[in-house]
Simulated assay, not measured.
Amino acid sequence: MWTAAAALLLSLAPHQDGKLAISNLRATYGVSGIVRETSKVSPGDVLYLCFDITGVKLTEEGNATYSLTTEIKNGAGETQFKHAGKPVTVKALLGGDRITAYTTVDVGSKQKAGEYTVFISVNDKSATASTKASFNLGEPEFALVHVLTALDAERKGIAATFTVGQTAHLSGQIVGFKRNDVGAPDIKVELAILDDRGNPTNKTPITGSIDSKSQVPSGAVALPVQVPVGLNRPGKFTAVIKVTDRVTGKTSGLKLPLIVSEGK
């Protein structure tokens, strides 16, 4: 089943064009999170699309009211899902005429593989702006999905960059795994951090397991995984996450940039 949600965030820096428009569309890991470099999506994943709305008209109180519509079509142009959001009012505390917004697409686990396009439109009663983004939905497979980088274990404070002294909580969900003869998953989780030259910051990666000792419920189809990374120095790093299904030998993973600045 497709599901979607959309929202408006706070105003950012001024933009002087004057016409309602959508710009800076990007796929991210979480709302305003690290930019997602691939258009491939696995079943069970969540696709976050963030963008800016420019040409915003504000009231004297600094309020802006808009509605967002998200529509998903398959490669044949057939509508698979459509969600017309109710008008939302936000206060542009920084002034200007630019607002950050996002929509999310919960792919689900039973959608047909193929190319899909997400159509996004914004309406403020006097004008409409629209944009679109395509993604490729793969076949069901062993994969690490719904990846987020957050400042807290509850994954509420999504972050794209960090400061020395903070902890980056790298998390996701493992889907498409198999169970062993005793009905338990047997998965190895590895995390390596590379510096800006591609060299490991530690000789051995952080490792963990999800197995019979984890007491995974028999009906579970997604396994949560989270690794906290203490940020003790500034720099540009890369987090390399790898998960291995030891029942089938299949692997999945990804690389995430970790930009850490000095606190001032």
Rank of each mutant, 00 (worst) to 15 (best):
I187Q: 04
G95I: 00
R179Y: 05
Q226G: 12
D211N: 15
M1P: 12
K178W: 07
D106E: 06
T59F: 02
S209R: 14
T244W: 02
G55K: 13
G75M: 03
F142N: 09
I34T: 05
D211T: 09
V118G: 13
T167L: 03
R26F: 01
T28P: 00
T89D: 08
L151S: 07
G165D: 04
R36Y: 01
V88A: 15
D181M: 14
K86E: 15
Y116S: 09
Q80H: 06
K255C: 01
L144Q: 06
L254F: 10
G30K: 00
F81H: 11
G44E: 02
I210N: 01
D97E: 08
S109I: 12
Q173K: 14
V240R: 07
N180T: 02
N136Q: 10
S11I: 05
L170R: 12
T79N: 08
V164A: 13
L58S: 04
P205D: 06
G30F: 01
A220Q: 11
N199E: 10
I193D: 00
S11G: 15
G62N: 03
F237S: 06
D97W: 03
V145T: 15
N202P: 07
A84Y: 01
N202Y: 09
T3M: 10
T28H: 00
F81W: 06
V216D: 06
R246W: 00
S214P: 00
R233K: 15
P140F: 11
R179L: 05
I99H: 04
T131N: 12
V175C: 15
V260Y: 02
G183C: 05
Y66C: 08
T201K: 04
T69Y: 06
I22H: 09
T59C: 00
T149K: 09
